[in-house]
Design a protein around this nucleic acid. Sequence first.
DNA 1: TAAGATTGATGTTTCAATCTTT
DNA 2: AAAGATTGAAACATCAATCTTA
Lengths: 164, 164
Amino acid sequence: MHLHRPEYMPRMTRDPGTLSSEAAVDAWAQMLRVSQALLDAVEGDLKAAGLPPLVWYDALLELRRAGPEGLRPVALQGQMLLAQYNLSRLLARLELEGVVVRRPSSEDGRGQVVSITDSGRDLIQRMWPVYRDAIARHFSRRLDADDLTQLSAILGKLTHVADR
Amino acid sequence: MHLHRPEYMPRMTRDPGTLSSEAAVDAWAQMLRVSQALLDAVEGDLKAAGLPPLVWYDALLELRRAGPEGLRPVALQGQMLLAQYNLSRLLARLELEGVVVRRPSSEDGRGQVVSITDSGRDLIQRMWPVYRDAIARHFSRRLDADDLTQLSAILGKLTHVADR
DNA sequence: TAAGATTGATGTTTCAATCTTT
DNA sequence: AAAGATTGAAACATCAATCTTA
């Protein structure tokens, strides 16, 4: 359990802000560990089925949503949590595989437009059943409706991480 | 929000096992996204303070717990979620930096024993205040005691991911 | 044969610098 | 100067093969 419970932590001060910090740090470590294990498990299922990693699924899904007009890489960046250089290289791999196409933007000379191809639509359709089953097996199956409601509410409180 | 809500998902079957699958998939995507953002934020704080990444903290913490006898790499592997080859190279970096030492095991000719050094103890002590503040800022500060209790209970249900 | 651990080759991510257009 | 995007070099992760001892 507790991936990194800090035994170093100084003996619990009276500062109200740190009163329950031990429980908070334990929960933090637990969350890190569980989500990493879940991610590993799901990625493992995809790989076992001979399919590409989750980040391909995420990118293709956003591009499919965008429709025939495609998306600017900078817009994709906002959806996915990727650095610009990282996205640039991901798109290069996707294009090499033939699942997306890139063309220069007519509106903005600096930019590009990326669209999903038929082959990309086919790939994401083949990925989804495997992904769906992996989520069910490792995640949904272990939680009931109340768990999902509570979890979602708590995660919602953690959403604006970039603040401050 | 919803990192990859599957619009591909076929129109909700009557199969009881999949009745609430949409909510589950949303919660799954939310969890992935939030934990990745939190991790990025905390790693960013460490880096901004000129400190090494979290995985160093985790390894050093386990080794400090182990005390003077040290730990076998295979034992560290169990604590951290790392592949063997990955750990091997992490330990090489830690040793190069002088924060751990490796020596052959006297009990098992195949194995080694790894211990933290004084320099390693110093490093982890310098990392902890930064890490603690990052957890507080990005995580604890946004949750109350009930949130922590609920979150921990839910994460507990997700813990045995390797099953089945 | 299996467990503990490492390594060469390859792929991916990151940092910092760059290039083009706004 | 700032925004959109890319790239060389370096760091790190992964795969498959290897080595040693149990």
